[in-house]
Write a protein that binds this DNA or RNA. Structure first.
Lengths: 132, 132
DNA sequence: CGGGATCCTACTCGATACTG
DNA sequence: CAGTATCGAGTAGGATCCCG
């Protein structure tokens, strides 16, 4: 699987033809889950259904505004389901949709990579900065 | 593997203790490869070593400035190796480091997810927007 | 050819205050 | 409780020009 659109040579072009649609899909999805909060919210809801305030409590540092915006985007993309209960005080529950749940696996793979390679990355940065 | 720091209950706390370091690692890495160009550059270099101009040719739309910045960041994190040849005209080659190569697998997994689920996501968006 | 230096725009995100 | 509205700072990214 190639993530890039343009082939390296005309020969390889015949083998790795990836359309512009593919590029758009990757970039679009990466823009969504690559933001500051989406992945953390998805991971939190991956454990179980939660109310708005509970999500906020388990994603340290997120503001009310950003949580609202993030949840709305995820709902719009069909990754999160929002259920409103007509009660007083109001109760709103958020859960991962089946599609949202399928994101957990590749996201966790990336997270594990990040955790595993982070010490080395920090070391590389220190060395790079030390050289000027 | 949990991506979140805060446990859902005190009981689960004992099981899923994830430190703040873990959060930092995930967010730091995601900030780097979640930007507009890094992943595309990595994918491009994943096929073979390339000169600066070649990378730019195979990542459609990237400006000279952004390619330079992106490559510098990746080099700083030890994901890309930069080799300068003392020639006229100057030649600079970029290649993935072993660490950078290990990123291909989880990144491709995420890319495949994006490609596979993108039609459904677009459909969800259309439906969401149609409802107002 | 492979950058560096500047300027500028757009957008993300946070803080705060208010509401049904 | 679960939002919405508004404002403002910071920053990612694009355009352009210049240099060894």
């Amino acid at each position: 699987m190639s993530l890039v659109d343009e082939p390296l040579t005309t020969y390889e072009s015949a083998c790795s033809g990836v359309t512009a649609d593919t590029q758009a899909a990757i970039r679009d999805v990466l823009n969504r889950i690559g933001d500051k909060w989406s992945l953390l919210v998805i991971a939190t809801l991956g454990e179980r259904t939660l109310r708005f305030g509970e999500v906020q409590a388990h994603v340290p540092g997120i503001s009310q505004r950003m949580l609202t915006l993030t949840l709305r985007q995820l709902e719009r993309d069909g990754l999160v389901r929002r259920e409103v209960f007509a009660e007083v005080p109001p109760r709103v529950e958020y859960a991962l949709t089946p599609r949202g749940a399928t994101l957990i696996t590749p996201a966790s793979a990336l997270a594990e990579w990040a955790i595993g390679h982070y010490p080395g990355i920090l070391a590389s940065r220190a060395e790079y900065d030390a050289r000027g």
